[in-house]
């Protein structure tokens, strides 16, 4: 039975690789590119929402992004995909974009709302003295953020970034709503051809598990190496 199942899976991959591999490629690109862009946009939003400046421009921008976060986090990702792909782009803006592009845009927008809040929280929990020391040394607000505050905030947020990346990856299973052949749709298509659900669905689950496993390795690498450059700063704080 066990070898039988493995053989079936192997056979399924061989028979349907022209369906599975492009689907796999697409969801990985959408998740990774979506995450990277969401990270960049989330950082920019957090720079605005944590800016100590209290002038009118800054105040309005903060209100705007508070509304943005509320709106985006209030809508399920699937609903956002449907709205952008079937309503906003074609009917409101009058732009026919490929579903693949729309998916990356929506993942970026959705992810940026969560990531900006993660970064905002992390920035606010960096000791105020760090910020004051930067400003007292004559660094600008932006230089202080870039060189002192954000590196500490990023490092403390790696676990949450990991959650977001994994969440985005798993959210690719709803991409067929906007006509993208993701691996979930691929599994369904295979079942429609073979009338056998066990192997494709098991294969589908295993595929997601393996992807998430590799992402976890990448996240660990960032946590242990990239943000510490092999050093152990804050090590005492973390282990007491």
């Amino acid at each position: 039975m066990q070898t039988n199942l493995l053989q079936n899976m192997r056979q399924t991959i061989i028979d349907h690789h022209s369906l599975i591999l492009p689907a796999l490629r697409d969801i990985i690109i959408i998740a990774l590119l979506g995450f990277v862009l969401a990270f960049i946009l989330g950082t920019l939003i957090a720079l605005v929402t944590t800016n100590p400046n209290q002038n009118i421009f800054s105040t309005i921008a903060k209100k705007f992004f508070a509304g943005y976060v509320l709106l985006i986090r209030g809508l399920p990702l699937t609903v956002q995909l449907l709205l952008w792909f079937f309503v906003i782009f074609p009917l409101v803006i009058g732009l026919r974009l490929p579903a693949f592009t729309v998916a990356i845009i929506v993942f970026t927008i959705d992810g940026s709302a969560y990531i900006s809040e993660t970064i905002r929280g992390a920035v606010q929990s960096v000791d105020k003295g760090q910020f004051e020391a930067g400003r007292a040394a004559g660094l600008t607000n932006f230089q202080t953020m870039r060189k002192i505050i954000l590196p500490q905030a990023y490092r403390n947020s790696v676990p949450q970034f990991g959650n977001e990346l994994i969440g985005m990856t798993k959210a690719t299973s709803v991409l067929s709503f906007i006509t993208i052949t993701d691996i979930t749709l691929a599994a369904n298509l295979i079942i429609a051809r073979t009338f056998e659900p066990i192997t494709p669905y098991l294969l589908l689950g295993i595929t997601y598990l393996v992807i998430v496993y590799f992402l976890t390795l990448i996240i660990k690498f960032f946590e242990k190496v990239v943000f510490v450059r092999g050093r152990k700063y804050n090590s005492r704080k973390r282990f007491v």
């Binding site: 000791d127 760090q130 004051e132 020391a133 002192i148 500490q152 700063y233 804050n234």
Partner: peptide
Amino acid sequence: QNFNLFAN
């Protein structure tokens, strides 16, 4: 008072 060396 609290030094405020950049921790990173």
